[in-house]
Structure formats: structure tokens, C-alpha cells
């Protein structure tokens, strides 16, 4: 993996990166860093596509904080020869974000149902079938070039209950018998593409929008990276992409959906726990599932009207902040003292 990355690095210094490097130097804040990045990224884009790393290329780090060109927007494989020059980048984004020119909405989302959309994409998470294998997380990362450390989708695994003493139990420890009186809950989490997304409404520059077919997206050409939307999402579904340095989030794999394919996470789901489809079509699988089974959404109390529905979770499916109630066995959260029962006095 490491050698492969060094192949990709030489053309990694786009015009934007140079600008940023210079700004960093000017600010005097990131001098050693800018030098480091320049060293890592090598000479500018004209060498892109040669595929040959300079002899002096240092081993690139897998840490995105030390190696911002890692597999991201600076990827030289998307250089000018691939139709991804600075000039065509803008056109490319238009194609990716909204090829059919659907109406987009920045506020007053009640107008969407009034506009009689052709499709309304939703996802159903049938958690009865989720085995917590994390394949969707991997395929999302790979499909969308999501940098290290951040996630467009992730699957939290909780355990409720405990191991209790039981003379009949099958767990033997120090000569005593125990029984696992616990339930494991797999919670695939993703942007809910809310019907009333607070993240879209708070954007000061109308960089993020909701498409007529329900998909909430960010236009990376416009976003100023202020972070308001990241804070405004009650589900922590947004982040600032450390490579493109703009807000980023799940797009339901919009480029695949527009091409008639399913989102990457849906195709890779081993248990068919993730189902994607058009809720306006009464014959779609999502419509059938939602008609047949009771379902819930995450945090309905925020009034965002999420469009990702969960089947197979009884009652409240939001995370209990108390680790003693719900033990997080597996999480992608790196910045919180999450799965430490009793580690923090929450109640």
C-alpha cells in the first residue's frame, strides 16, 4: 500500500494546493508543514500520469494529517489527461452532482413534495439482517475516496445487558458459570437525507442543497468550509473533508444512482440489510418493506424527518449516551471517550 501511494503522489500538487501552501507560509503558521507537503507532493501537475515517483520521494505516511494527498482530490490519476483539469473540473462536478438538471432547494423544503418529483430516494436499514461486518463502510470509502479518519457511513455495534452468573451458563470463568444476557445491536449510520435538513438551511453561501429527488449534497466548488452545517446536523453525518477541505457527506452515491445503479454500500451488503429505492414507486422494495414492517428513524424529536428508515429496532434507536446502559462494542468515534463504561460521569 505504501509503495502504491508513492506512485500516486508526484502530480498531487494542484493549483489549489500550491495556493494553500503559499497561504500557509504567508500566515507563518504552517511553515514546516507546507514545506513537508511540498516535498511530499513533488513537482506540479505536468508530471502527472508518468506514474514514476522521483528517486528522492520519502515514504508517504498513511496518516491523512501527514499526507493530505492521500487518495483524494489531489489524486494524480484524475489529472488533465483524464479530463479532470482545472478547466473541466467545474463541468465534471455539474455532471456528478446534478446531470439531469433537477430543481435544487436551499430552504423551504415543503416545496419539494409540491413540485411533484419523479423520484424520492430513501434507504431502509433492515437491522434484523445486519451482521455488523462493516463491508458497507469499506465499499463507501473505496467508492467515494473518503480520506482516512472520516466516514460517510459507519456501523456502530452496541451491546446491551451483561454477563450474569448462572449455574446453567455456558461461560466458565474461575470455576463459576455465567450466561451472556446481552443483546448486540448493529446500527448502520448514514446521512438521513432529511426531508427538512437543518444542515442545508444554515449554509451561509447556499453551497449545500437538497435535490428534487431528495438527495442532500454539497457543492465542493462553492463551500467555504465554515462548518456550520457540520454542527447543524443532529446525526453527525457531515464532516470537513481533510483533503478537499470542504464539507462532505453521504450522497447516496449520486453518480451511481443517476446511472441507474445502487449505492455502493447497498451492493456490498452481505445480508441485504440495506435496501435503496424510490418511495414514490409503490412496487419498489422499500415501499413493500415500509408497508409491511414497523419502522423508526433516528432522533425523530429533532423534527428533521429523516428519510432513512430502520426496521427491526424496537423503540428508541438513538444512541444512549450512557455507556453503562448501552455498551459500544465497536465504534468509529475516535475523539470521544465512548466505549469506556463508567469512564465518564454522564448521569
Amino acid at each position: 500500500m505504501a509503495t502504491k501511494n508513492s506512485d500516486l503522489d508526484p502530480g498531487g500538487l494542484s493549483r489549489r494546493a500550491i495556493l494553500k501552501g503559499l497561504m500557509g507560509v504567508a500566515a507563518g503558521a504552517a511553515m514546516p508543514l507546507a514545506a513537508h507537503a511540498a516535498l511530499q507532493s513533488g513537482p506540479p501537475a505536468r508530471k502527472a500520469g508518468t506514474g514514476l515517483p522521483p528517486e528522492t520521494q520519502p515514504e508517504p505516511s498513511l496518516d491523512p494529517r501527514k499526507n493530505p494527498s492521500w487518495e483524494g482530490w489531489n489524486n494524480p490519476r484524475l489529472g488533465p489527461t483524464n479530463g479532470w483539469s482545472d478547466a473541466s473540473e467545474s463541468a465534471a462536478w455539474t455532471t456528478i452532482l446534478n446531470p439531469d438538471g433537477l430543481a435544487i432547494y436551499h430552504d423551504r423544503f415543503y416545496r419539494i413534495p409540491e413540485s411533484h418529483p419523479k423520484h424520492h430516494w430513501v434507504m431502509v436499514m433492515d437491522t434484523r439482517k445486519c451482521v455488523g461486518c462493516q463491508a458497507c463502510v469499506v465499499s463507501c470509502k473505496s467508492e467515494n475516496n473518503v480520506p482516512l479518519g472520516v466516514y460517510r457511513t459507519w456501523v456502530d455495534v452496541y451491546q446491551t445487558g451483561d454477563t450474569v452468573p448462572d449455574p446453567e451458563g455456558d461461560v466458565v470463568l474461575d470455576g463459576r458459570r455465567y450466561r451472556m444476557d446481552a443483546k448486540v445491536v448493529n446500527m448502520p449510520k448514514i446521512c438521513n437525507h432529511c426531508a427538512h435538513p437543518p444542515c442545508v438551511e444554515v449554509c451561509p453561501v447556499k453551497a449545500t442543497f437538497k435535490r428534487q429527488d431528495g438527495i442532500v449534497m454539497v457543492d465542493p466548488r462553492l463551500c467555504i468550509g465554515c462548518g456550520t452545517c457540520v454542527n447543524a446536523c443532529p446525526y453527525d453525518a457531515r464532516f470537513i473533508n481533510p483533503v478537499s477541505q470542504v464539507a462532505d457527506k453521504c450522497t447516496f452515491c449520486v453518480e451511481r444512482v443517476d446511472a441507474g445503479l445502487l449505492p455502493a454500500c447497498v451492493t456490498s451488503c452481505v445480508g441485504r440489510a440495506r435496501v435503496f429505492g424510490d418511495i414514490l414507486d409503490p412496487n419498489s422494495e422499500v415501499s413493500h418493506l415500509l408497508a409491511r414492517y414497523p419502522h423508526s428513524v433516528r432522533h425523530p424529536e429533532f423534527g428533521t424527518d429523516p428519510q432513512v428508515f430502520y426496521i427491526g429496532e424496537s423503540g428508541d434507536i438513538s444512541t444512549d449516551p450512557d455507556p453503562n446502559v448501552q455498551h459500544m462494542v465497536f465504534t468509529y468515534t475516535s475523539n470521544a471517550n465512548s466505549n469506556v463504561p463508567g469512564g465518564v460521569d454522564v448521569i
Partner: peptide, 25 residues
């Protein structure tokens, strides 16, 4: 605080008035 602060002019040309609190600001 903004990561793309060189796009500050959008705050005026594309101001999300009056829906965004920062746009109103």
C-alpha cells in the same frame, strides 16, 4: 475558522439571506 476562506466573497454574492443565521450576520 473557514477552510476555504479565500471564497469569502460568496458570503456577499451568494448570501443565503434570510435563512442562514451566518448569512444574516
Amino acid at each position: 475558522e473557514a477552510w476555504q476562506r479565500e471564497r469569502f466573497w460568496e458570503l456577499i454574492t451568494r448570501d443565503h439571506f434570510p435563512y442562514s443565521p451566518l448569512g444574516m450576520f
